[in-house]
Design a protein around this nucleic acid. Sequence first.
DNA 1: TATCCCGATGAAACAAACTTGCGTTTCGCA
DNA 2: TGCGAAACGCAAGTTTGTTTCATCGGGATA
Lengths: 159, 159
Amino acid sequence: MPPSSPSLDSFDLAILAILQRDNTTPQRLIGEAVNLSAPAVQRRIKRMEQTGVVAGNVAIIEPAAVGQPITIFVEVELESERTELIDAAKRQFSQTPEVQQCYYVTGEADFILVITVADMGAYEALTRKLFFGSNNVRKFRTFVAMDRVKVGLTVPLPD
Amino acid sequence: MPPSSPSLDSFDLAILAILQRDNTTPQRLIGEAVNLSAPAVQRRIKRMEQTGVVAGNVAIIEPAAVGQPITIFVEVELESERTELIDAAKRQFSQTPEVQQCYYVTGEADFILVITVADMGAYEALTRKLFFGSNNVRKFRTFVAMDRVKVGLTVPLPD
DNA sequence: TATCCCGATGAAACAAACTTGCGTTTCGCA
DNA sequence: TGCGAAACGCAAGTTTGTTTCATCGGGATA
């Protein structure tokens, strides 16, 4: 459980705006941009990492470059919404590497998945494993991405 | 346009696996993990960044910590699929900060959006701007995320 | 088979960035 | 007015990133 965050001031937000665009930016440059010394920047970053405001620092890999050029969305509807079955589904989706993102949602579906695969054959095999293999999936709808218009985990920051 | 990548060997893939989990890992440690010297690691990373295999280095921000606790999926169906209108929609979605991800897809919808907002009021306002404001949106379906089961841009890497 | 060339490597030197300690300032509150 | 907590900047120390350079194969060619 992340420690509660004591709320962020405008310095923190300005720092976050930079880091979520490029976290290799030197603290010195960040400092110049926000009018703070490098150590001050460093302390704030450290605090936000410890409190969970910054959830991670990662390199973004181009899927096509590593043989996973196809992105697919799937809406999954379950037969039963018993808690244990929901949890079992969450667990299975989480453990599947091809499932890049998984959300439990309200509405006409129960889950929405973002899946990354090498080709449609791989997707077909995955559906067999994840959906047909489970007798708790009532149905699922597939959307193949023709264009990844905007991709990222960037969050809009308040002013 | 990213320069073509000459294909990656097992060293590159091992390095990528580490970086997409934590890109603050020192090159020295990466070197130990993959049996390479730090300079060798550094050259490979640099090359992969230049060829576009590594598309970015970013901090992941917890949306709830910056006042955007609600994640919403939207399937958007357009009235017309004329190229210019598609492109106009792509442009508008790309420019909207609350639209974190946008995909142009095949199937029963034209676009799938991942949206981040502070509350349902903000979402309602956004729908007015993006969908009702445009007379090219035939309909849209909303899915509110109750649980962000798995989030990230991690790509499965070949062995 | 010998030779040349190319690309990648590791060791070491170097530069840059990160991190810590410390004295000072600021600000809220008694 | 005085006290304490929190944050600051500076400067020193440490770690990390980067460049240089000599060397090591692997392949193509003669």
